[in-house]
């Protein structure tokens, strides 16, 4: 039964193989080698120049004793859970607004997208300036409203919200993908809701949200991966406030994100074996999260083509 099903699809398989040739080449060249070597190094003591010395599970045992590991896991989870939720909410809301047929829509789209054109380095710099406790725009606004003004990046308590703000500002790509997705929703669906007397909330709940679930699914997985790889903010804060002799963790290590910790262990302390083990744990954790999302996606992700993730 199954065999004949694929027999029917032989032309499709042939085209798939043809189309996948570049990807397989890329996989072998740019992905497989780094992944395999990282896994190997994770079982060794390795500092780039000398041949790696196999130490078995030592790196992994050490990781679970390392308070920087726990600190960085906490920081990254905070950043990803709060950040990705806010990113998705802000971008879906923005996309709906930008899809409204009003005058000046192109200008609004450009305004919403502008921050995403700014390089991540410049983004961090602009927000460090915006959030400057003394001369920053944000605090002068809060002061005018009589709200207490946090120290943002200089304080352990507020540095992560500040980093999330930086990420939220550059959410333009997510908005665009949602916008393209909204463009694919047939207008008749909305008309049907209108006929039933439904308002904007009903339209969102019964049409927009389920019809965009394929995009949301994509944004969610991508957001988690990008969130765990967050690096630039911490790097720039350290570069511009040269008080820490190169320490990247920010006030009380509150900006020691997972990828930052990997960088520190590798490039600052030259423990590439240990850094590789940290990366492997990250890889395993994210594969786990992705698989869970793929499995549960059957319940909430809707594809117009009827396809399902398995």
């Amino acid at each position: 039964m199954k065999k004949s099903k694929y027999h029917m699809q032989r032309p499709q398989i042939r085209l798939a193989i043809l189309f996948l040739i570049p990807w397989i080449t890329g996989l072998i060249l740019f992905s497989l080698y780094p992944i395999v070597s990282t896994i190997y190094y994770s079982f060794t003591e390795y500092n780039l120049m000398k041949p790696p010395v196999v130490t078995g599970l030592k790196n992994y045992m050490d990781i679970f004793q390392d308070k920087n590991f726990y600190q960085s896991v906490y920081n990254s989870l905070y950043f990803v859970v709060v950040g990705v939720t806010l990113e998705l909410a802000l971008s879906i809301f923005s996309a709906i607004l930008l899809n409204a047929k009003v005058k000046g829509r192109g200008i609004f789209r450009t305004m919403f997208y502008l921050p995403s054109i700014v390089s991540p380095v410049a983004n961090a710099i602009i927000w460090m300036w915006m959030l400057n406790p003394q001369y920053g725009l944000v605090n002068s606004f809060l002061k005018a409203l009589g709200i207490p003004q946090p120290l943002w990046l200089s304080s352990a308590q507020w540095s992560k919200p500040a980093a999330i703000l930086m990420a939220l500002w550059a959410v333009g790509n997510t908005i665009i993908v949602y916008l393209a997705g909204i463009g694919d929703i047939p207008t008749e669906y909305y008309e049907a809701i209108e006929l039933d007397g439904g308002g904007p909330i009903a339209k969102f709940r019964y049409i927009t949200w389920p019809m965009l679930s394929n995009v949301t699914f994509f944004q969610l997985i991508n957001g988690i991966i990008v969130g765990f790889a967050t690096f630039t903010q911490s790097y720039m804060v350290a570069a511009i406030e040269p008080k820490g002799n190169g320490l990247l963790g920010g006030a009380k290590n509150s900006l020691l994100f997972y990828a930052v910790n990997i960088y520190n262990e590798g490039f600052r302390y030259l423990k590439f074996g240990y850094a590789s083990a940290l990366a492997v744990i990250m890889l395993l954790g994210m594969i786990l999260i992705t698989v869970i999302l793929f499995v549960t996606s059957k319940k909430w992700v809707y594809y117009g083509g009827g396809g399902r993730d398995e």
Partner: peptide
């Protein structure tokens, strides 16, 4: 906190 705030307003070295 106020020292931190003050320091954040120091210009480029």
């Amino acid at each position: 906190d106020k020292v931190e705030k003050f320091k954040s307003g120091f210009g480029a070295y």
